[in-house]
Amino acid sequence: GTLHLNGVTVKVPSLEKAIKAAKKFAKKYNLEVQVHGNTVHVH
């Protein structure tokens, strides 16, 4: 999967790991997580 954090793109081995990391990051910075196919966006 691919993880987008505020314009930074990170390749992640699995989508589940990407979503987990995204949710952790989003919670910390009070951001929103959106999943588009195998790409996770945090903004």
Rank of each mutant, 00 (worst) to 15 (best):
K24D: 09
P13F: 09
A18T: 04
A22F: 10
F25T: 01
K17N: 10
K23A: 04
A18K: 01
A22W: 10
F25Q: 01
E32R: 06
K27S: 07
S14W: 11
V12Q: 04
H41S: 15
Q34L: 14
A22C: 13
A26I: 07
N38S: 07
K11F: 13
A22H: 00
G37F: 06
V10I: 15
G1I: 15
K20M: 09
N30F: 09
K23N: 07
V35M: 04
L31T: 03
K17V: 13
H36T: 13
F25K: 03
V8F: 13
N6F: 15
H36Q: 08
S14L: 07
V42W: 05
F25D: 01
H41M: 15
A21V: 12
A18Q: 00
E32C: 15
A18I: 07
K11H: 12
V8C: 14
V42I: 14
H43T: 12
N38H: 07
T39D: 11
T2K: 08
H43P: 01
V12P: 01
K24I: 09
K17E: 13
V35W: 08
H41G: 02
A21M: 14
A21K: 10
A18N: 00
H36I: 14
K23M: 13
V10A: 04
L5P: 02
H4T: 11
L15C: 00
K27A: 11
L15T: 03
Q34H: 15
V35Y: 04
A21C: 15
H4A: 05
L5T: 03
S14G: 04
K11T: 09
N30L: 07
H4P: 02
A26T: 02
T9A: 11
N38I: 13
H4K: 09
K17Y: 13
V12R: 03
V33N: 00
G7Y: 06
G7F: 10
V35H: 02
L5G: 02
V42E: 01
V35D: 01
N38Q: 08
A22Q: 00
I19A: 00
N6E: 04
K23C: 11
L31S: 02
V12T: 07
K23F: 08
H4N: 09
E32D: 09
N30Q: 06
K11R: 12
